Simulated scan of single mutants.
Amino acid sequence: MGVFTYETEVVTKIPAAKLFNAVILDGDTLLPKIIPQAIKDVELIEGNGGPGSIKKITFGEGYQFKYVKHKVEAVDKENLSYSYSVIEGDALMNNALEKIVYETKVSPSPSGVGSICKSTSKYYTIGEFEIKEEQIKAGKDKSSALYKAIEAYLLANPDAY
């Protein structure tokens, strides 16, 4: 088994606490609303949304994957951090991956305007499977597009969150 890790950093005009509230605390409701072509539905299967909870994310028509289930590992509202593991679904590439762990931290921008969202993705492979560079780039591009869609929504709706 190998572990492939990559990091993504997205800078937004949205204050850190507001971005965390929108993406992490209310993301299950907000994301299907603003990007239904990517995320059709988020269903809480087990738990209350906190650590140990299991969620099923159903993706939109034509999306690369049909669904994933993820387990919430940690939610730290004070430090604006969140982590979860993908434990089931076609994103695990027909069992070529044991799991995928995502850790996200939102911080105020050093300039005092907006925030920086840093994400670490760890892919736990089974056997000799390797993550290709184009797969990493595609993941980073999707992450960036997700944050830009959220930023656009929050800028258009300044009273939200």
Rank of each mutant, 00 (worst) to 15 (best):
E128K: 15
E128A: 15
E128M: 12
F129K: 10
F129L: 06
F129R: 12
E130H: 14
E130T: 15
E130M: 14
E130K: 15
E130D: 14
E130P: 04
E130A: 14
E130W: 07
I131D: 00
I131L: 15
I131R: 03
I131M: 12
I131E: 00
K132I: 02
K132T: 08
K132F: 04
K132W: 02
K132Q: 14
K132G: 02
K132R: 14
K132D: 04
K132E: 12
K132N: 06
E133S: 13
E133A: 13
E133P: 02
E133Q: 13
E133R: 11
E133Y: 07
E134P: 01
E134Y: 07
E134T: 05
Q135Y: 00
Q135F: 02
Q135S: 10
Q135N: 07
I136E: 02
I136V: 15
I136L: 05
I136S: 02
K137Y: 02
K137Q: 13
K137P: 00
A138D: 04
A138Q: 09
A138F: 09
A138W: 02
G139N: 10
G139H: 01
G139P: 00
G139I: 00
G139F: 01
K140F: 00
K140G: 03
K140A: 07
K140T: 02
K140R: 12
D141F: 01
D141Y: 01
D141S: 08
D141W: 01
K142A: 11
K142T: 06
K142C: 02
K142P: 00
K142S: 10
K142Q: 13
K142M: 10
S143K: 06
S143L: 10
S143I: 03
S143R: 07
S143Y: 08
S143H: 11
S144Q: 11
A145P: 02
A145I: 00
A145Q: 09
L146M: 15
L146I: 07
L146D: 01
L146S: 06
L146K: 13
K148Q: 13
K148Y: 10
K148T: 10
K148V: 08
A149E: 09
A149D: 09
A149H: 05
I150Y: 02
I150L: 14
I150F: 03
I150V: 15
I150E: 01
I150T: 11
E151Y: 04
E151P: 05
E151N: 07
E151S: 07
E151R: 08
E151L: 06
E151I: 04
E151A: 05
E151T: 05
E151K: 08
A152K: 15
A152D: 15
A152N: 13
A152I: 05
Y153S: 10
Y153E: 09
L154Y: 07
L155S: 11
L155W: 06
L155I: 15
A156D: 15
A156P: 08
A156M: 10
A156C: 12
A156Q: 15
N157D: 09
N157W: 11
N157E: 10
P158F: 13
P158E: 13
P158N: 14
P158C: 13
P158T: 12
P158G: 13
P158I: 13
D159E: 15
D159G: 12
D159F: 14
